[in-house]
Amino acid sequence: MKVGSNLEKVLTSGYFAATGELGPPKSADPGVIRHKASLLKGYVDAVNITDNQTAIVRMSSISVGIMLLQLGLEPTIQMTCRDRNRLAIQSDLLGAAAHGVKNLLCLTGDHQRFGNHPTARGVYDLDSIQLIQMVKTMRDEKKFACGEEMDVEPRFFIGAAENPFADPFDYRPYRLAKKIAAGADFIQTQLIYNVPKFKEFMKRVCDLGLHEKCYILAGVGPIKSVGMARYMQTSVPGMDVPEEIVARLKGVPKDQVRKEGIKQCADIISEIREIPGVAGVHVMAIEWEEAVPEILELAGLLPRPKV
């Protein structure tokens, strides 16, 4: 056990993990957090809190993480390289650890061009792999990126992301290996709708033995409408949404689409659970947090284990 977070305990105990996600508001309103937290509490092993997701300014991930701790949920804070240099990242992580945050997802971050401040300067002092390496060095060697030592190290269960559907496809498993070599303890993937392609990716991952060095959580998420499915299929870089996913939603009456989206997500989870090497699912239902309990119930993942 590296840090003893709930997520780490669930995974090391051999349970199939289920994590959720909470998108902070574009405001200073703590009520939004309390509401969303109440929808997820008790249904997931940990809750990711996005860090200025899609490069749109929102309440900070770490501050929301602290609120979740106070509300009795386990946060996984996200940290991108887009907005902070190595000084700011390390400083924020010391603070997060001091407040009791134990899970961290290391990301490069969506390019600022896609967000609401497209003329901002992107930092990218480090990339996500270097960020992982830096956090591991802080935790395991008690050293800052510059090599200086510290008295009390921040202890994080280190997460990383991977998109099995981005190109070059052949390189993706090796890139995952690189993240694990840098220090990733767990992986949360991009949203998976193309299960056969993900299966192929996981086969390669297992051939490299990576599933034994790291816990791989498959990213899943319910689709609310046919329009959203189409949008994700055509306009979101790095997304792979096969036609049958859209067709299933199109095949039900309009007022049934949301229900079908929830069922579809649960079915994808059931399929994914059968794939060797997958240690859990990460349910991303941004702005639809209330769907999470139903999805997990349908997928047979409730109640969550007490570890």
């Binding site: 990339d127 792999i129 991977e162 190109d167």
Partner: peptide, 18 residues
């Protein structure tokens, strides 16, 4: 666009930059 040093980001598709 992100001056990455350790491989492509998740937005690389069909050889193009997102």
């Amino acid at each position: 666009a992100k001056n990455l040093l350790n491989g492509p980001c998740g937005g690389s598709q069909n050889g193009k930059c997102e």
